[in-house]
Amino acid sequence: MPGLDNIGMLAMSGGLLDVSPGLMIWTVLTFLVLMLILRKVAWKPMLLALNEREQFIKDSLDKAEQAQRESERLAEVNKALMEKSEVEAQEIIAQGREYSEKLKSQMLEESREEARKMINSAKDEIVRKNQEAFSSLKSQVVNIAVLAAEKIIKENLDNEKQEKLVNRFIDDLTKN
């Protein structure tokens, strides 16, 4: 009898491995309710937000990469443009230098030509003036000679007078 009592006591107090159907039903109910609530309240919005964020980060990275590639391309283009403009500037400077050189030599040539022309015209002038002076001198001399001749003819009578006349004439000539 005491042995039976012992077994009864053990069954009443329960062992570690005793299974209680009531507790199992409560567990299943609690778990299912928890899963249903959390699925609606937490898992769906959370997983959605997490997926969205994942997508956002991926997109941002893609965009950043694209922007970087674009900027690299632009830098390349800029560099090429710079090089080209440099070459062009050099060309323009060279052209300017060449032009100015040409202009200079042309102007020099022109001025030399002008000077030569001026010298020539001056020479011509001098020759002309000379000739003019010579012809006027000649006509004067002729006139004087004619005058002298006239006077000689007028006072042809005496030598003395003639001599005087010639002397006077020479004096006149020298005075002139």
Binding site: T30, V33, I37, L38, V41, A42, P45
Partner: peptide, 17 residues
Amino acid sequence: MMWLALIILVIAFTKTA
């Protein structure tokens, strides 16, 4: 205890979401 866990989880995850 299980109900306590349920309440804690529902509150924590409602706020998180």
